[in-house]
């Protein structure tokens, strides 16, 4: 059984009133009561369209596409739980890797659409991509007036590639992990 507190306790009801009043004071007068009130500085919130908070760099905002790495292997399409990725590609010839070799047969993307109305941000596509073509980006401002416009195409996905944060080296002892390097 815990020892009884020796000091007389402030009743919880009064204490609660004090908490709300103190929060109000700290919001209205963030620099102390003698300075002029500045609620927009004291508030914990930001006024969104005018001020913006930078999300943490590894935030799961949107999935970006590095087009040149994509081989249209369709792994992401098949693993996606709600079927929100659409890929179309055709076979084409690329110059040989070594002098005098055969031209290589590669897939060239025709279409890489991502339906963000369906996407549930599970990140399985990012995990499963063996060629490091998909990356998480902290970008979050891509809402649309119409739900059909939330299908974003490869050019938009490639633009988001610029917002992908640079790779930070893994901590020591975890070098075996596959490195997912955006650039």
């Amino acid at each position: 059984m815990p020892a009884k507190p020796s000091k007389p306790q402030v009743p919880g009801l009064i204490k609660g009133l004090g908490v709300t009043l103190r929060t109000a004071k700290e919001t209205i007068f963030p620099d102390g009561m003698l300075k002029p009130p500045a609620p927009s500085k004291g508030a914990a919130t930001v006024q969104y369209p005018r001020e913006k908070e930078a999300p943490v760099t590894r935030a799961r905002g949107v999935i970006a596409l590095k087009e040149e790495n994509c081989t249209a292997c369709m792994l992401c399409v098949r693993e996606c739980p709600d079927w929100c990725i659409y890929i179309e590609a055709h076979k084409t010839l690329a110059p040989p890797r070594r002098e005098g070799g055969k031209p290589r047969v590669v897939n060239e993307l025709d279409r890489f659409d991502f339906d963000y109305a369906l996407c549930m941000y599970c990140g399985i596509c990012v995990e499963v991509c063996p060629f490091e073509a998909l990356f998480w980006s902290p970008e979050y401002e891509y809402s649309e007036a119409h739900i059909a416009d939330l299908i974003h195409d490869r050019s938009r996905l490639a633009q988001w590639m610029e917002t992908v944060p640079d790779f930070e080296p893994y901590e020591s002892g975890s070098e075996q992990k596959v490195k997912k390097v955006p650039r």
């Binding site: 709300t20 929060t23 109000a24 919001t27 609620p39 508030a43 914990a44």
Partner: peptide, 13 residues
């Protein structure tokens, strides 16, 4: 306003 300040936000602006 006052309630917003008590919740550390600004209320309608």
């Amino acid at each position: 306003k006052f309630v917003s300040f008590m919740q550390s936000r600004l209320g309608p602006m």
